[in-house]
Design a protein around this nucleic acid. Structure first.
Lengths: 206, 206
DNA sequence: CAATTAATTAAATGACTGTTCATTTAATTA
DNA sequence: TAATTAAATGAACAGTCATTTAATTAATTG
């Protein structure tokens, strides 16, 4: 009588997970439009029709992947941020967090930034809103810093866009096991970000 | 007897140009894989077969577009750069040039950065090499500035990647006719770039 | 064990894919 | 005007596309 008990013949939770994993890496490698349902089915080890037990359309697979990536990102930042922290410390925290989060999820980041246009109306709007929320977090930090003259930039919006592009760009060149450690890369980017808004890192201790 | 005179029935130069224009905007809007030869033909106002008078394959259209974009970029920078200029001035010149060049060519930039993976071996290698050449120009400026201690960054390669990502990112948000003029945007980015490497702009006159 | 049902298969759907090609159209030259 | 040829047509090719469906398998329940 256990309500939560799975009913007969169920090992689909496992399959669902594999579908997500394989779709993610295929979309990242070839792009959404270039990946067929047959390719996904082959990678999962299942017939194409079986995929439709888990997702109504191919688009829905992409939408799910992007949505849960953005939710994870927003949740992770919510756990990381410190209310009432001064702008300079908050900006450094944001920069380090963004690098750390993105550098460990190259595939998720890649498709979330490249395949937005592959999403139709509904899915697009949701992701767009989530992204705006994340951009808003950085913009708020910049505006606070501008207001109290810690940051010497004219425009919080352009500043936020420039910083986000710089940070997210780490995924275009970083490959794990490279010349530099992840924490060293974090240091380099944090320093550049703080300087870009016109404030040096305390003691330049890197 | 004019050797340069076009031979009979020739108005194909015009068609070739339209094919390039329409392919460019379709690839930029939908992505290479999501655009069919029939879509291109429809946009051009021609039957699908006619496209093969101008390009042997669909891939070749993309390769041509990307290659000529990169050639234009490298040529434009060659005209812009000043030999023997001090690093700080050279970096500001590079930043302003990059913004100016990219902001006026959103479609070309978009496909050149997004569709590299859609290119097969030969075409890929050519574009990759051209891009490396351009990155090398910025890296050389940074290395010169590091050597004479004008720039306070640890790593020229990471610095170049960060700056390029920041600058190129302008195309993710800028739309012509917006709140800010192109020259104002140039100012903002130039200032942020110079500061990011640890050197302020003379007199902050913006 | 029998009944239930989640999970999957295998085949089929019609639309669309990049590309080829024999043929036609039309602009130019001798 | 007649010959030449660039340019474009439009149908056809062999596959692949996302998706649907009926039938089958297999795990769990009472």
């Amino acid at each position: 009588m256990n309500v939560l008990a799975r009913t007969a013949g169920s090992r689909g939770a496992e399959t669902a997970k594999i579908i997500r994993q394989k779709s993610l890496s295929l979309f990242a490698r070839h792009g959404f439009a270039a990946v067929s349902m047959r390719m996904i089915a082959d990678a999962v080890g299942v017939q194409p029709g079986a995929l439709y037990q888990y997702h109504p359309t191919k688009q829905n697979i992409l939408a799910d992947l992007m949505q849960s990536h953005m939710e994870t990102l927003l949740q992770a930042w919510e756990n990381e941020t410190q209310q009432g922290e001064p702008p300079q410390a908050a900006l450094e925290r944001f920069a380090r967090f963004h690098i750390r989060f993105h550098i460990t999820r190259p595939d998720e980041v890649f498709i979330s930034y490249m395949e937005l246009r592959s999403l139709e109306n509904e899915g697009f709007k949701i992701i767009e809103a989530q992204r705006k929320r994340y951009e808003g977090e950085l913009k708020a930090i910049l505006e606070a810093g501008i207001a109290q003259k810690t940051f010497a930039i004219d425009d919080a919006h352009v500043g936020a866009m420039a910083i986000l592009a710089m940070l997210t760009g780490v995924n275009t060149w970083y490959r794990s096991g490279g010349r530099l450690s992840q924490s060293k890369i974090e240091d380099i980017y944090a320093k550049m970000v703080l300087r870009s808004v016109g404030c040096a890192m305390e003691e330049d201790n890197v």
